[in-house]
Structure formats: C-alpha cells, structure tokens
Amino acid sequence: MTKTQLFLVLGAAVLVVILFQLPRSVVENEQLQEVTQTESHSMEIPQEVETQINELRRLVEDEENIDKKANFAHSLARRYLDYGVVDSAARVAEDIDGWTNEPSELVADIYFTAYERSSGPEQAKKYAAEARAVLQELLDKDPTNHFLKNRLAMTLVVSENPMAGIGMLREILAQDETNRQAILNLGLLAIQSGQFERARERFENLVSMDAGDYEAKLYLAVSLMEINQQSQARLLLEEILATQDSIPAIKMMASDYLSGL
C-alpha cells in the first residue's frame, strides 16, 4: 500500500488528512522535493445522519441563547465535516462568526478541520487562511496555548512562508519538549517529505513517552518499512492488531500493511 493510500484511509479518522495539502518543499532540513497532491471527496450521508443534521438545523434556528446556538451550530458543522461537506461547514462557521463579537475557538475548529478535509490545494489554502486568521487572534489573547499554536503552525506550512510553520513547531518543542502534537506534526512532515529516518526518530520518541500511543506506532512502522526494517515494522503492526485499545482505522491500516510484508 502506498503512502497516499495510508493518508486517505487514516484521513477518514481525522489523523493525517492534512498531509494531502502539504507541499513537499516543506521539510525539516529545507531540502526541496517534488510536489504531490492527493484529493479527498465528500461521502454519501446516511439517512440517520441526515436526520441528525435536520434536527441540529432546527435547534440552531430556534435557540436564542448565543452560546447554545453557537454550540449547536458547531455540532452541525462537525456532522458536515465528518462526511467531507466542507463548504456547508464553512458557511456555518461564517454564521457563528456573525453572532459573536470576538474570535471563537468553535469557528477556528471548523475552518481548521475544513482545511484538513479539503478536496484540493486551492480549497485547502482558502480554509487554512480562514483558520489562520482566527487562530492568530486567539493566540494574541493566549500566546501560551500550544494546542492553538500547533494548529496555526500547520496552516502556515501551506502559506507563502511555510518555514514559519516548521519554526513554530520547533518553538513549541523548545518550550515543551514532550508536546505530543508538535512531535507528531514534525514526524508527519518528515514522512511526507521522504525523511524516514527523521520520522522514525520522532515516532520512537512518542512511543517512548507513551507505549499505548498506537497512532505513533503505526507511523513508526511505516517509517521502518521505508528504511527496509520490515521485521521491526512487523512486530509493531502485530502489536497494534493484538490490542483492544487502538481505533479501527489504525487497525485496518496495520492489517493492510502487515498483509503486504
């Protein structure tokens, strides 16, 4: 299975869809490599989910309390995002923004996820820019929030100044060397750019921090396979399949990779 297939399947679980949008020129050692692009698409919405969407629309329309209204709207947008209907989700974000007088983490979350699940580079850049604007406002108020900073960094890697995003991730690690999301993001960027030894280091770090981090173990296995250490990769994949704790998408990918060894 190719790395593209890895990203497609795990993207359904909101793990690495963002990698579809990353230019391969964005790498930790600033080497330039060929740009590749993968597209994702919206999925058919089951009837029961349509029912949930209609009920959430009703709740949004009927609710007068702004905070509750925004929360219902955020839930509605997340339903859209679950099935790749990013433009509808973005319109909900615009509505929430119009109801509030200050930057909203709900709006930032919708735009960032829309960026992750965009169908192509232009749409991704559009929603990355929307997310970036809100995230920057939020960070201006709370500059130590590493969750928001990680997200801002990943929107910057598709901007005109991608190395600012890499620098921001490194800055997070300088302040918090065990920040999982920053390590994960840098590891994923290393995979995307073909720096598999560097990726291996990142994911080994995560696994040493938490032996139950099966997402990191899967990416570590992928990195090991790419540097021809199949026996070690096999052990990791078998471990992922043996546990009850790993999410289904990770197990599915572990099974697919194991069958290819």
Rank of each mutant, 00 (worst) to 15 (best):
Q175D: 07
Q123S: 13
A124V: 10
N179Q: 12
E171R: 00
E204N: 04
L148D: 04
A211V: 14
A153V: 00
E94V: 12
G194K: 11
Q175K: 10
I183S: 01
P121I: 15
R202M: 12
L184Q: 06
A89L: 11
T113I: 14
M209G: 06
L184E: 09
D140L: 12
T155E: 01
R170T: 02
A153D: 01
D140Q: 08
E105H: 05
N150G: 03
T144G: 09
L148H: 01
P103G: 05
L156G: 02
D97S: 13
K141P: 03
A89E: 11
E177Q: 06
I110H: 03
V86N: 14
L148M: 15
E137F: 07
Q195W: 09
I172D: 03
E116S: 10
G194I: 07
E130P: 06
I191V: 15
A89R: 02
G167Y: 03
R91I: 14
R202P: 02
L106S: 10
E102R: 11
P143L: 03
F196Y: 13
A133K: 12
K149Q: 06
D176F: 01
G165W: 00
P143I: 06
R91T: 13
L186Q: 06
E177I: 00
M163Y: 10
Y83F: 14
L173C: 02
A90G: 09
A128G: 09
L148K: 06
M154F: 11
R151I: 10
R198Y: 09
G165M: 00
F147P: 03
F203K: 00
L169D: 01
L186G: 01
G187P: 04
D82A: 14
G165K: 03
S118K: 08
A164I: 07
V85A: 11
D109W: 04
L186Y: 04
D95R: 12
A190G: 06
N145K: 02
E177F: 01
N179A: 06
G84E: 12
L189A: 04
R151L: 13
F196Q: 05
A93G: 09
L81S: 04
E94C: 10
R202F: 12
A114C: 13
R117M: 12
L81V: 07
K126F: 13
Q181Y: 04
S119Y: 09
D87A: 15
Y111F: 13
A182C: 01
V92I: 15
L106M: 12
R198F: 08
N161F: 11
A153F: 01
Y127Q: 04
S159H: 05
Y111T: 07
I96V: 15
R117W: 10
V134L: 05
H146N: 14
T100N: 06
A153W: 03
I166K: 00
L148F: 10
S88Y: 13
R180V: 07
S104Y: 05
V134C: 03
E94N: 09
L206H: 04
F147R: 12
N150R: 02
K126V: 15
A114Y: 09
L138N: 00
A199P: 01
T113G: 00
A164C: 03
L135S: 00
L188R: 08
S104L: 05
P103Q: 12
R200D: 05
F196A: 05
E204D: 11
G167F: 02
D140E: 15
A174K: 05
Q195Y: 06
V134F: 01
S193I: 05
R91Q: 14
E130I: 09
A133P: 00
P121D: 11
G120H: 09
D140H: 08
